[in-house]
Nucleic acid binder design. Structure first.
Lengths: 136, 136
DNA sequence: TTCCCACTTCAAGCCAACTTGAGGTCAACC
DNA sequence: GGTTGACCTCAAGTTGGCTTGAAGTGGGAA
């Protein structure tokens, strides 16, 4: 099995070496051993880092993400939990899609002032609603 | 014109008083004056805060958002910036969709180890691609 | 054999966006 | 006119996710 120096993994994954060390420190990833002082990672780590990156995009904290994967990097959640998360992502995707459309509309809207545009107003109402509802 | 105490504005906007003070301190919002020591805000602030909330959702920093208001608090939205943001949202949506598909697949897939499943591998390759491409 | 340089550790620093705490003020109601 | 409690200021603290710096190590090419 071919092993990777941290620099190579960094290159392949787009994650900086210092970040990789940090991830290992917090137990998010594991190196498979050392070559002298140097950490060696296996090819699986690349996949795992891709998954981590996706998790970050989805707005999960590193701590959350840590809880989603077994030590080997494969997702290790009960099926029901996975479905729940997938559903939550659907929801999030819908919200972002609406936001994106709105943003694009505003960028294109010819109205004098955005405040005169009914679509923009609706958007603001939505913002106000979800803003006050929010419980993070 | 009816003025609002910070507590009332906080209630109406869903933004905490300390945050409102902070926003004023960094020049993101303005109070119109004082009643004794107490800041007074006008009704426009509610709208502005909704807009700020929207901007945050879209991924703008407070500094960015600050640049989107004229001195009088009316929005001056930079169209090009908005398009860029919309594109970034597209990217994010793609990532989320992949993550969702991966989760759903894992929930359903009967393979021994996910890393052996070609479908999962393909999903991860996509993931890796969007992950390493990213330049924020 | 020597030298380079990518790696190592550990502590400290950094950033955004707030929150907290201590100690003070004052408008309004009783 | 006394009490209350929502406000005030200012400095410091917090959190997450890294990055930076100083000082050291060791694999492997020349």
């Amino acid at each position: 099995m071919k092993l990777l120096d941290i620099g190579i993994l960094s290159e392949k994954s787009g994650v900086s070496s210092s970040t990789l060390r940090y991830y290992e420190e917090i137990g998010l990833i594991q190196s498979v051993g050392r070559h002298g002082l140097r950490r060696q990672f296996d090819a699986q780590a690349v996949t795992q880092l891709a998954l981590i990156s996706l998790g970050k995009m989805a707005g999960f904290s590193l701590e959350d993400i840590k809880g989603m994967f077994a030590k080997d990097g494969t997702p290790q959640l009960p099926r029901a939990e996975l479905q729940l998360r997938a559903n939550a992502l659907d929801e999030q995707i819908r919200g972002l899609t609406r936001l994106r459309d709105a943003l694009r509309h505003v960028a294109d809207c010819p109205a004098e002032s955005h405040m005169d545009c009914p679509k923009f107003k609706r958007l603001m109402e939505f913002a106000a609603r979800t803003a006050t509802k929010r419980r993070t």
